[in-house]
Amino acid sequence: MPLPYYVSPEQMMQDKAEYAKKGIAKGRSIIAMEYTDGVLLTADNPSSSLHKISEVYDNIAFAGAGKYSEFENLRKAGIRHADLKGFMYSREDVTGRSLANAYSQSLGTIFSQEIKPLEVEILVVQVGVNHHPNEIYRISFDGSIIDEKNFSVIGGKAEAVQSILKDKTSTEPAALGPALALCVSALEQTANLKLSPEGLEVAILDRNRVGRKFRRLSVADIGRLLSG
């Protein structure tokens, strides 16, 4: 029988974290930003069919960075969780906070118990209605969860994008057009390339909509907002 080799837990966690971080940094960034009527989600995504941003429930959206197959699984699990809760109780009982908690639990369990951690970073965003504030939760590969204000960045060169946005945003949210322009310029600066509307995936949670607040912006919509 081969002798089980010993690795200190500290070393193991460190290795896992490094591995996950490397995977996530390979991708491109996604920004969630509050604007006057809700929350804007902008992703540098050249594919028009493989989405990084998705609707979860009436007021809630999801964005995932890192390995597609892994955050896609998390996205589906989130939608099931939300639909089940809405069906069992009522639509208003589905909250971003409970969803973010569930994600945190899952990611934390996988990080500590599996050999390979998930190489993902995700955002759970809820638009506030009836004068409630918006909620933005950033959840990392190890299940750590951070409640952010104004804006949040995941994936790719997240820290670089974050430092650009920090200087340019004020506490008062901007209108949709300027907010989108700001997000796009921050993504362009860190990626060092010009992003066309075709290379962007943009969606909003608009609190003025009735029922389901999530809407994807078409290439034409994005072009109009950026030129306007």
Binding site: A77, R80, H81, L84, A102, Y103, Q105
Partner: peptide, 16 residues
């Protein structure tokens, strides 16, 4: 895994 049940269809009815 919490909230990651072993299920891979797009039907909510079948999930229930």
């Amino acid at each position: 895994l919490p909230y990651l049940p072993d299920f891979d269809h797009s039907s909510f009815f079948d999930f229930l």
